[in-house]
Nucleic acid binder design. Structure first.
Lengths: 219, 219
DNA sequence: GTCTATACTGAGATAGAC
DNA sequence: GTCTATCTCAGTATAGAC
């Protein structure tokens, strides 16, 4: 629905300026705290231009997020492609799958500091479960399948819950400004943070499915 | 600062009605989507009464959350007291510590369905990191200390990060309506959900600290 | 097809009378 | 303690200029 390329209509300029301003301000202040009037003032456009190009405020957020998230999800897919190609018919390493999900985030964070804040805001602030779902559903499904292949003995239901635990931990880890004592040092190093997370999650995924839990009917 | 007991001023009625309405509506619709005017209509009070009793909208939220969260945090502390008393001078089991943090949530959820939704809203929606911090800082610190005792070989910095991973996974697990395929069955069973989480997190905490990561300077 | 000017409704907040 | 009146600012919608 949203034209993603530039070729048509020569890129109005207005549209891009709105997106840039919105991205910066939302990353800084959050979605709710950022008014359309702030955005259009920074972009030096009229407020009606926002509604012309995007519709409601939430739709503008959707466009902002899409512009940043789509390349990251693409990078994740490519990374996972490589991992799967290298594994061939053999087993998949859990760590490799998790890295293909987590490290593209860190790479992007390096070259665009706003990105992490924006993602954190998106996942942390209300920003519509529907919006999150829309942008991540396909990616999550693809990774769930890969994880299922890496841990074939794990019942599907249990795997799905662990995927959710992973998503929650990741969202929190990304948005976190580490304020608890003893972790001031590596606050900005998103790559280290994500590698810590890989270690933690890999162990969690490997944990034996608790036989005492009632789910013997699955898989 | 906020008087937490009823004895003084005979409990105005107005104040309690506002809290009840706010709690219900916020749990149903979220914080941002719930207007003060909705709340005062349901409570049948004047809008200025809200500002008289609580101040700003955010302060009202603070009072609502406090009323629900304080008992849960107290239950957590008591549970952990028992676990530590039983361990005596011996080692602490990671699972026991995690259960004392996670299972009181499930217990409360059973008898008050709104509670989980409210907590999920609080952690999931923007609801001020400052607010979250205020209500959970003491609890988190106490549990970090217990976990540190249960996993003494883990460097402090690594432990703190894993605590954050735990918080993120927990918040997400609590607020989650499981929509991914294969998990429709046990959606409402918060206790099972939390026990799954204990298994997952315990394995994550037990994972060896990755020696390749640069943090040899700590502890 | 793009954008500006302007108006509308509802939000949170506050001052001051009772 | 409570309520009325009012203020400012938010998101949204429309009419019409280029």
């Amino acid at each position: 629905m949203i034209e993603s390329d530039v070729s048509i209509s020569r890129m109005s300029g207005t549209r891009e300026r709105i997106l840039d301003s919105a991205e910066r301000l939302i990353a800084e202040q959050g979605y709710a705290a950022t008014s359309l009037r702030q955005i259009i003032a920074a972009a030096k456009v009229n407020i009606a231009a926002v509604h012309y190009h995007f519709g409601a405020k939430e739709d503008l957020l959707d466009a902002v997020v899409l512009r940043k998230v789509a390349p990251v999800n693409a990078a994740r897919m490519e990374w996972l492609d490589r991992v799967e190609a290298q594994a061939g018919a053999g087993p998949l390493r859990i760590e490799d799958v998790l890295e293909s999900f987590l490290l593209p985030t860190a790479d992007t964070a390096q070259q665009n500091p706003d990105f992490v804040r924006l993602m954190g805001r998106m996942l942390t602030e209300g920003m519509m479960p529907s919006l999150v779902e829309k942008h991540f559903q396909a990616t999550v499904m693809r990774f769930s399948a890969a994880l299922s292949r890496a841990i074939p003995y794990l019942p599907r239901q249990e795997l799905m819950w662990r995927v959710h635990f992973m998503i929650g931990a990741t969202a929190h880890a990304m948005s976190m400004k580490p304020i608890l004592s003893g972790m001031e040092g590596d606050a900005p190093d998103m790559n280290l943070r994500m590698r810590r997370l890989v270690t933690f999650l890999a162990a969690g995924f490997r944990a034996p499915s608790n036989a005492a839990l009632p789910e013997s009917k699955e898989k």
